[in-house]
């Protein structure tokens, strides 16, 4: 299969502080690959290294068949980027943003203009072609950033937290568009800390923490391999006491976070039986999800 991005043993530190510690991954054509991690895990630095915007201290990157950072500029001809912070040109209209950006790829104005209607259609901005950027909502701006990233018809698109800061409607629209892109054969690499985003979109995920990949696989594989299949959440004033006397013993694994107890287990029956009739406790029994895996692998401590 065609490998669009190949990273091997990537290392990067800032002032002696390692930020990326030996990351390796391969992106095959037509896949949606997710880098999942808490803030400060090294996701954005990894993207910057792949773009050739900073030099690695060690390791090897090949993007679209070219070595990075040596030939990063040429490799980016085949790439689209949706940055974490919108960097649209506030002095231009929606259409001008696309035309000016397309020129950076050496495209002729005529060819870009031919693409603009389809890009705007895709981004749901067909009626906004002549609008100034200031008049767009956050969701529209993000969709325009996505359209801009597609102006050169790239083989691979990097998306750095594409839906951070958007409301649910806007997020769902972006997800739907990203799925369309994958269906069209585009390859996506996205960073996120939203589990539902990763679970819905990504064929393959790597969970990053403190600069390393701590687990990789499809969302299903990660859940199957790293966590007990059943989760029972117990809330209420009596939950901590119940946890100490019963919960910790009955579940395969359990933890208490404030007034909530999480029980992870392969057999939920003993736990549920014990909770039967405890009207002072609220109980939620659900299948394990990616968020459980994520919290198990990266811990519950706050990252800022």
């Amino acid at each position: 299969m065609n490998v669009l991005l190949d990273i091997e043993g990537l290392l990067k530190s800032y002032g002696g502080n390692p930020v990326v510690r030996g990351i390796s991954l391969s992106l095959h054509a037509g896949a949606c690959y997710g880098l999942l991690g808490p803030n400060g895990a090294g996701k954005t630095t990894t993207l910057r290294l792949c773009l050739g915007l900073t030099e690695p201290d060690g390791g090897r990157i090949t993007l679209a068949g070219l070595p990075v950072p040596v030939a990063a500029r040429e490799a980016r001809l085949r790439l689209g980027v949706v940055p974490q912070m919108d960097s649209l040109d506030p002095d231009f209209t929606v259409t001008e943003n696309l035309i000016v950006y397309g020129r950076y790829f050496g495209l002729r104005d005529r060819d870009i203009r031919a693409r603009v209607p389809r890009l705007l259609e895709f981004a749901g901005l067909a009626s906004k072609a002549g609008e100034r950027i200031q008049s767009l909502s956050g969701g529209m701006k993000r969709r325009l950033s996505l359209a801009r990233a597609l102006v050169n018809d790239p083989d691979i698109v990097f998306l750095d937290e594409p839906t951070t800061g958007l409301d649910p409607q806007a997020r769902h629209l972006i997800w739907e568009r990203l799925k369309q892109l994958v269906a069209q054969g585009k390859t996506l690499l996205l960073t996120t800390h939203f589990m539902d985003e990763a679970e819905r979109l990504c064929d393959r995920l790597s969970v990053m923490d403190q600069g390393s990949i701590v687990a990789s696989g499809s969302p299903r594989e990660l859940i199957d391999q790293h966590i007990e299949p059943d989760v029972i959440e117990v809330y209420g004033d009596g939950a901590p006491a119940w946890h100490e006397t019963m919960g910790a013993r009955l579940a395969d694994r359990s933890e208490r976070v404030g007034e909530t107890v999480f029980c992870y287990t392969r057999d939920p029956r003993p736990v549920l039986a014990d909770l039967e009739g405890r009207r002072d406790l609220k109980v939620l029994h659900r299948p394990a999800n990616l968020e459980d895996v994520f919290l198990k692998l990266t811990g519950r401590d706050l990252r800022d």
Binding site: L51, R73, R76, L77, P83, S87, D89, P90, Y104, N152
Partner: peptide
């Protein structure tokens, strides 16, 4: 402020 340079450097320009 506008991150225009950053956007350009994501395109094939250094």
């Amino acid at each position: 402020i506008q991150k225009t340079w950053e956007a350009i450097m994501n395109a094939p320009l250094d």
